[in-house]
Design a binder for these strands. Sequence first.
DNA 1: AAGCAAATACTAAACGTTTTAATTTTTGAC
DNA 2: GTCAAAAATTAAAACGTTTAGTATTTGCTT
Lengths: 369, 369
Amino acid sequence: MFEVEAGIVSGEETGRQGSREPAASAKGRRRATIRDVARACGVSTATVSNALAGKPHVKAQTREAVERAAVELGYRPSAAARGLSSRTGRTWSVGLVVGDIENPVVPKIVRGAEEILWANRTSLVLCNTDFQQDKKMAYVRALIDRDIDGLILVSHIFNDMEARAISLSDLPLVTVNRMNDQWQADYVGIDNAAGTRAAVDYLTGLGHRRIGYIKGLNTSTAAQARFDGYLSGIAAAGGDTDPALVIQGDYTQESGAIAARQFMALSDRPTAIVAGNDLMALGVLGALRDLDIAVPNEVSVIGFDDIHMSAHPLINLTTVHFPQHETGAMAARLLLRRINEGPDDLPRSVVLPPQLIVRGSAGVPPRRR
Amino acid sequence: MFEVEAGIVSGEETGRQGSREPAASAKGRRRATIRDVARACGVSTATVSNALAGKPHVKAQTREAVERAAVELGYRPSAAARGLSSRTGRTWSVGLVVGDIENPVVPKIVRGAEEILWANRTSLVLCNTDFQQDKKMAYVRALIDRDIDGLILVSHIFNDMEARAISLSDLPLVTVNRMNDQWQADYVGIDNAAGTRAAVDYLTGLGHRRIGYIKGLNTSTAAQARFDGYLSGIAAAGGDTDPALVIQGDYTQESGAIAARQFMALSDRPTAIVAGNDLMALGVLGALRDLDIAVPNEVSVIGFDDIHMSAHPLINLTTVHFPQHETGAMAARLLLRRINEGPDDLPRSVVLPPQLIVRGSAGVPPRRR
DNA sequence: AAGCAAATACTAAACGTTTTAATTTTTGAC
DNA sequence: GTCAAAAATTAAAACGTTTAGTATTTGCTT
């Protein structure tokens, strides 16, 4: 399946030396500690700590000497020791729990969060759960063991029991894309119902009345809200409420393709299909191409999310834009805020507005035969 | 731009209580320490540590008691304290440095690595550098401060000076996709030259002789190798070596589109275009669609990477498959191996084979006018 | 030249583990 | 019962920081 080649050894041999001196061993120098710096400039570790932290009550001259010695020795404080010691014990790291990093919306959210976190010298521990309960729990436990400062959950929540089991009580927490009725946490997401509603309104405005909908996984509140938007749009326009027009998907491209075939097999086909996300919409487009059904002339298609590929000239999908980058950034901002402010202030919700992006996959319905 | 709604406060007020008892404060119980467990079953911390670590020389009865008390109190060892103490001081976390998490190949690599790391109880600190030198350096420094056990660099390397500056000497290191002549590290990647060569051979086999190539960023050894494969393929088939047939791109879709327009403006157009990656190939396809040039009837297009979208019926891109998941997984395996074995064994290189995936974007060249 | 406050620096404890070396307890043979 | 060996446990010393609390120096006032 693959080749393993012997690599090239560059530079000197790494032979072991007999001595076990802590000063400098065969394999590179031991990392300098604060004590080394203190010793180097004849001063106590406390002074080094204060000097380097920019605390007052340190003579300018001493501070300089310490700083010089620190760079000289290449001293860098150990994050672990810091996290342990300080009364305010921050580890400057947060957990980011996602279901599937390969879902195109996720990297954009991650990127948005990373940007803000990086600017605040906080590092990001990425956890991919495959949407498995136990993996999620195990990951969060590991994160708590690591004393992370906070947690961002993308499309995940905890039920009451889980939250209790991992004694989540005072961990700063932000949920993205998934409302949490049971547990107290900040939230950031979009108005999903309004998004789908805009899509449906656009279609009914074009004259469509028979509109199919492909639902996302029903474990998610977002999926439900998007569906609600569909229902309200259909109701408002007096559209067709045939139950055969709603198919359950699972947010994957394949499930979109399957649903499309199912719709097209109907004796009374829908003239338009709205998908719960772009990935399923892409599946629809693919299936329709395979079936040689023209988009939008025979069937209109609208997605949700506005992933990168939807804008490609060969795809050209009309869709509802979900501000992924901003969502991630906002989640990070809320989290840092809560980490700094403590648990005292009320949980906040930030609801970003979705926006219909009109491209070429939706048009007027075909004339009735 | 967005609405901020006051959240709903659930449950009891979080008013401060006067007392400052360490036992149980207003904001949830303090985390149980090993000392608490020890006290709870009248035993020393050393015994608790040994019992929980499954060390020998602990009476079965004691072990049971300790285990019971541990779960009872919800005791979980602090990772930070662990990393600090133990002689073998492992933190069970590694850094993963990528240039751009939004590039579709990256999440798959990340996912592959995550899978292996998770199975080995190691967590993953994600760093997104935007390919900026200073951000890369700062991130790595932060990682080293965190005492990570090892580092995976995706499409990044260090030059000698950088490596020295962060005293990288004994940090287990795996580079992905980018050979490193100066510094000693494990490597995993694919045979890029062979990949492009296969693509070019396929095209020349179909009769193409005038084949355009869009190079990736020339800072990368992978980009160079892919280009070398093109050159050797052209040479082997006696193809056209017009320098106008090679255009420098930057791995983005936009640069692919620009290059395509440039090729099509030529008086003597190429009959086929090979792109250094799929993203640029998608740009080519988009531009050709905009120009109303048929693929593959007028121009054939081949990409490199085989990102998810390339398989979509509307894209249907012939491309060279780069085993992204396996690459990430292998990188993690190599890293864990080196972490466990220590720096003594020779650096290894794993070279995975690329594979030409024939889809619909390449065909026989149009008949000469 | 003494006295005193401010400025500076230091000592020691704390953070939560693991590990070493020492100590106590148990076991089993005589 | 005695004693050595084996087993179980423990006290104490790390690990590398930060931070109270305390001690020293400095510089100014009388």
